[in-house]
C-alpha cells in the first residue's frame, strides 16, 4: 500500500502541467468573462441609480413647480373673483343710482308739466268762460 516510486514525481509534474493547461483554457478566459460581466452589471447599476436620482430630482422640482402654479392660479382666481364681485356691485350701485335719479327727474318733469298744464287750463278757463258769456249775451 505504501510503495513510493517514480509515480510520485511524475504525478507532481503532471499536476503542474494540468494547472498550466487549465489556467490557459479555463481559468483565464472564464475569469475574464465573469469580471467583465460583473463590471457591466456594476456600471449599469450605477447608471441606473444615477438615472433614478435624476428622475427623483426632476419629480421633486416638478412637484414644487406644480404647487407653485397651483398657488398662483388660486390667487389669480381669487383676485379675479374679487374684482368681478367689486365690478358687479359697483355697476349695480351705479345702475340703481341712475334709476333713482331718472325716476326723480321724471317725477319732477311730470309735476312741472302738471303745473304748466294746470296754469294753461286756468288761462283757457278764463278765455272760454268769456266766450261762453259772449255767446250767451249775444243770444239774449
Amino acid at each position: 500500500m505504501f510503495d513510493f516510486d517514480a509515480t510520485l514525481p511524475l504525478m507532481a509534474v503532471q499536476f503542474i502541467l494540468l494547472v498550466v493547461i487549465l489556467n490557459a483554457i479555463f481559468f483565464k478566459p472564464l475569469t475574464a468573462v465573469i469580471e467583465d460581466r460583473a463590471n457591466l452589471i456594476r456600471s449599469s447599476q450605477t447608471g441606473a441609480k444615477e438615472g433614478l436620482e435624476q428622475i427623483n430630482a426632476i419629480t421633486q422640482q416638478y412637484e414644487k413647480e406644480l404647487a407653485e402654479s397651483r398657488r398662483q392660479y388660486q390667487s389669480v382666481i381669487a383676485k379675479a373673483q374679487a374684482d368681478a364681485q367689486k365690478l358687479a356691485s359697483d355697476q349695480v350701485a351705479a345702475a340703481q343710482a341712475e334709476a333713482v335719479a331718472q325716476r326723480e327727474q321724471a317725477t319732477q318733469e311730470l309735476s312741472a308739466q302738471k303745473v304748466s298744464a294746470m296754469a294753461e287750463l286756468e288761462k283757457q278757463v278764463d278765455g272760454l268762460s268769456q266766450e261762453i258769456l259772449n255767446k250767451l249775451l249775444v243770444g239774449v
Binding site: A6, T7, L18, L22, F26, V33, R37
Partner: peptide, 30 residues
C-alpha cells in the same frame, strides 16, 4: 517503476477536465 493504473485513471481525469473546459470556453457568451 511506476503505477500504470494510476496514470491511466489520471489521464482520463485530466482529459475530462480539459475537454469540459474546452467545451465551456469554445464559444464564450456574455
Amino acid at each position: 517503476k511506476v503505477h500504470g493504473q494510476v496514470f491511466l485513471a489520471t489521464w482520463f481525469v485530466m482529459a475530462v477536465l480539459i475537454i469540459v473546459s474546452l467545451l465551456a470556453t469554445r464559444n464564450i457568451q456574455r
